[in-house]
Simulated scan of single mutants.
Amino acid sequence: MSHPADDTLRHTPLHALHVRLGARMVPFAGYAMPVQYPAGLLAEHHHTRESASLFDVSHMGQLSLIGPDAAAALEALIPMDVLGLGVDRQRYGLLLNDAGGIIDDLMFVNRDVAQGGDLFLIVNGACKHGDLAHIAAGIGHRCTIRVQFDRALLALQGPRAVDALRRLLPGVETLVFMTGRAFEWNGAELYVTRSGYTGEDGFEISVPADAAEGLALALLEQPEVRPAGLGARNSLRLEAGLPLYGNDIDATTSPVEAGLAWAIQKVRRSGGARAGGFPGAERVLGQLDGRIPVERRRVGLVAQERVPVREHVGLENFDGQTIGETTSGLLSPTLNTPIAMGYVETDYSEPDTEVFAMVRGKPVPMRVRPMPFVPTRYHRG
């Protein structure tokens, strides 16, 4: 597999810092990104679980929707309750196509859009230009879209993240999971949410590009904090049972198949006051209320032998019939056992069902397990 030369890749505002810190840089979502630092993936993973790690996620796309109709407009694109979201509250969302497939998953915050603020969206790096085009085509006539792809995004994750960040941003400790607030640091306007992609407590910090390196250095000076790369981010999110767009969910996957129906609030479901009205509603609501069968489901899998099972490995039943495929997999650093997620025919999706992953032609027994594999520790107050 050929990778583009580094000079064809975009750089985040922290690129020079990553190089100084000895990061191994790899292509990801069109950017040169740090996959790990000299300490290595395992050390970075364990440090995040025990203390606090700083991740550069500036490849993600940031944009704002502005105007009195912005919340209702966004509801026309996603099956989430936007109108009912409180000020400085954050919610997980899904952009769907007309077949009910997932174009992207995203996070959105109501920064008082009703009083002249905005809806602040964070979308996946590899999808951000396509997402922008989709949003502009769908609701660009109903609200103003302000693109902020030049802003940096830092993720400080781990049980001691709050100890480190409160020294720089007093008051940040009052945030709870999925809430946010504006802060100022050295003259730079920040927006901080208590959220993340590791299953641990932590924060995501939107920061102007020219202040990003200074803030990152200030955080790395805190005794709790060390840098971590994409490798540890991936192993942590898999242990937390969180899907990766492009691997575990894509434009062919419905929210119900993906196990993400929890993200569709009651008001947007059949019988709700604002039910439907989003792309793919017929399929999604039909699968939710049983009118349309759900033929496959995303499940967690734990190997019964110490054989790592990666993505795109076929899954078979006792009779050797193909019943699914893995979409992510690795040797869990926390559990010290191989874990994976993938899709299986619905009949095989119940916990403790045994299936076989075909690794280099040999069947590796795996059991279906509920996710997360490692309990999440979000700070809910």
Rank of each mutant, 00 (worst) to 15 (best):
V307Y: 03
G280K: 03
V313E: 11
S328T: 10
F318E: 08
G314P: 00
A281G: 02
R298T: 00
R283Y: 00
E305K: 13
G290P: 11
I292K: 07
G290Q: 11
A281E: 10
R283W: 00
P308V: 07
V302E: 14
R306W: 04
R283C: 01
P308W: 03
F318S: 11
E295L: 09
E316Q: 15
G271I: 04
V267A: 02
G324R: 08
G300S: 00
R298E: 00
I323G: 13
E305H: 12
Q287L: 10
G324D: 12
V267N: 01
P308N: 06
A275E: 06
R274E: 05
V299D: 00
F278Y: 13
E311N: 14
L301W: 02
G290K: 10
F318L: 05
R269A: 05
G320V: 01
D289L: 10
G277S: 11
G286R: 05
A303L: 01
G286V: 04
T326S: 09
L301E: 01
G324P: 13
D319S: 15
R298W: 06
E305C: 07
G324A: 09
H312P: 00
F278T: 03
H312V: 14
R298I: 01
G271R: 01
P279C: 09
K266G: 03
E325T: 15
D289A: 08
H312F: 14
G271A: 06
I292Y: 06
S328I: 02
H312K: 15
L301G: 01
F278N: 05
S270F: 04
V313Y: 10
G277A: 10
E325C: 13
I264W: 09
Q321W: 12
A273N: 09
V284T: 04
S328Q: 04
I323S: 13
P293H: 01
R291T: 15
T326I: 07
I292D: 05
K266V: 06
R283D: 00
R291P: 00
V299E: 05
R291M: 08
D319G: 14
E305Q: 15
I264S: 08
P293S: 09
D289C: 10
T326Y: 03
Q304A: 15
R269Y: 03
L285R: 05
G271K: 00
G324C: 11
I323P: 13
G277C: 08
A281I: 01
T322R: 14
R283Q: 07
G314L: 13
R283I: 11
L315G: 08
Q287R: 12
V299T: 00
I292W: 01
R296H: 03
Q321S: 15
R298V: 01
F278E: 04
G324N: 12
T326K: 06
A273H: 04
A273V: 13
G276W: 09
G286Q: 06
V299M: 02
E325L: 14
V284Y: 02
G290S: 12
S270I: 10
R269K: 13
R291D: 12
T327I: 05
R310E: 08
G280P: 00
L315S: 08
V299C: 03
R291F: 02
P293N: 03
R269Q: 15
I264E: 06
E325M: 15
G271P: 07
Q265E: 15
L285T: 06
G324V: 11
D319V: 11
S328G: 04
V294D: 06
A275C: 07
S328W: 02
V313S: 11
V294N: 05
F278C: 08
